[in-house]
Amino acid sequence: MRTKLFFLLLLLASLLWIWLRSQTDLEQYTLNGATMGTSYNVKIVEPVTHIIDQTALHNDIDSLLYDINHIMSTYIENSEISLFNKAPAHEWISISQNLCDIFNVAIETSRKSSGAFDITVGPLVNLWGFGPEHNASDLPSEVDIQARKNRTGFQHLKIQNQPPAALKSIDSMYCDLSAIAKGWGVDRVAEFLESKGYHNYLVEIGGEIRAKGVNVHKGPWRIGVSSPNELSGIQKVIEVLDVGIATSGDYRNYFEMGGVRYSHTIDPRTGRPITHNVASVTVIYTSCMMADAYATAINVLGLEQGMMLAEKENLPVLMIVKTENGFVEKKTPSFEAYISK
């Protein structure tokens, strides 16, 4: 009798151990696809007992990104931003709440960066061959640059929150959301996952990231910051839990002419590609959209002014700077806490 009882208790203990392990062991699901002219990757970590309908979730994410693209892309003729760009100036144009929120964040970042970040830079982006317009075979003239600059300026974009509407106070204004679109898309996908009950995930679109909870090993998410040196791969590894990460750099998207390299990042204040020695800027922020916007603003500002903005806003920032002896790192004090030891 005692032997039977012993084996019964042993069986129950074994079943309890198996059940407890099933509740604590984690599995990672990976979904990926194409969006915004780049790729996206979503990693979701759940207990092994929680089965995910990956096909349905994948379809939902694709549908969400399709809708986002049709708000923000200047490459889609009937997207909301394209229709706004075609709308007449000096009239209030009804816009979606989403676009209104994006405009508000963009204008706030423009003010904080003294115009280094400016979504009305579109005419200049196109002039230099980095937008939907056909790439020019020659460099733009000073006359062309000044003519395009006259069509820019965030101060000429007026926003009304209720009901959401926007007004362009100069003719031929053209807004380009590429410096904020991927970050906003990341945030929207993250919010969608939250609404579905997922709290351990990593969302990445074209290098912009938002991570929450833990990875499959029950630790913080480990993110590699790319090195501008193609031979080095990863410059720095950071560990994050509930933040967004964005990087702005000039070492992948550029063109060369006459032996000179021209960055895709346009300084709205000069109308020309940036020429300083900052190769990349990585920003950590609770919102990936804000990280995206600040990364662009700081990259335009350059080392000294960029660091001043980062420290004023208490931003965790990593700059990789080109020198005669190679690349060096410049960090704000708050970035140190994220570096993997």
Rank of each mutant, 00 (worst) to 15 (best):
T3L: 13
L5T: 13
F6Q: 13
L11E: 05
R21T: 06
E27K: 15
A34R: 12
M36N: 09
G37E: 02
V42D: 03
I44P: 04
T49P: 00
H50C: 08
I52V: 14
D53T: 10
A56H: 12
L57S: 08
M72T: 05
S73P: 05
Y75A: 02
K86T: 01
P88W: 07
W92Q: 12
Q97A: 12
C100P: 02
E108K: 13
T109P: 00
K112P: 01
S113I: 03
S114F: 11
V125F: 02
P132L: 00
D138L: 06
P140Y: 07
S141F: 06
V143A: 12
I145Q: 06
K158M: 11
I159R: 04
P164G: 08
S172W: 07
C175W: 00
A179I: 12
I180Y: 00
G183W: 00
A190Q: 05
E194H: 12
Y201H: 08
E208F: 03
P220R: 12
V225S: 00
V225T: 10
L231V: 10
I238T: 02
L241C: 05
G244N: 07
A246G: 04
T247E: 00
T247H: 00
E256F: 01
M257P: 01
G258Y: 08
G259E: 10
G259A: 10
Y262M: 08
R269I: 14
V278R: 01
C288D: 05
M290D: 03
A293Q: 03
I298C: 09
I298M: 08
I298H: 03
N299K: 11
Q305F: 03
P316G: 07
V317Q: 02
M319L: 15
K322A: 12
N325C: 04
E329W: 04
P333K: 11
